[in-house]
C-alpha cells in the first residue's frame, strides 16, 4: 500500500480540521504533540476517518487517541494492513 507521508498528513489535517493561526505546520513537527499543533481529539478523529478512506485501512479509535504526535500516527497508519475489499 501507499505510505502516509508527513506532507500528506499535513494536507489532511488542514483539510479536515483547519489550521491554527499561531502554529507553523511546515516545520519539523514529527515529534510535536497534536495538542501543541492545535488539534484536539475531534480533529484527529476527523483526520483519521479521512486516512481510513484514502488508504483503505481501519484504525482503532483507542490507537488513534494514543498516537500523540505525527510520528506516532504515521507509524500507526503505515503499520496497518489494508482491509480486504
Amino acid at each position: 500500500m501507499a505510505r502516509l507521508t508527513l506532507d500528506a498528513l499535513r494536507t489532511i489535517l488542514v483539510a479536515c480540521a483547519g489550521e491554527d493561526d499561531g502554529v507553523d505546520l511546515s516545520g519539523d513537527i514529527l515529534d510535536t504533540t497534536f495538542e501543541d499543533l492545535g488539534y484536539d481529539s475531534l480533529a484527529l478523529m476527523e483526520s483519521a476517518a479521512r486516512i481510513e478512506r484514502e488508504f483503505g485501512i481501519a484504525l482503532d479509535d483507542d490507537d488513534v487517541n494514543e498516537a500523540l504526535t505525527p510520528r506516532l500516527l504515521l507509524d500507526l497508519v503505515n503499520g496497518s494492513e489494508v482491509r480486504a475489499a
Binding site: A15, A17, G18, D20, D21, L42, A43
Partner: peptide, 8 residues
C-alpha cells in the same frame, strides 16, 4: 475567524 473554526 481562525482556520481551525472553519471546518467545524
Amino acid at each position: 475567524l481562525p482556520g481551525r473554526l472553519l471546518p467545524q
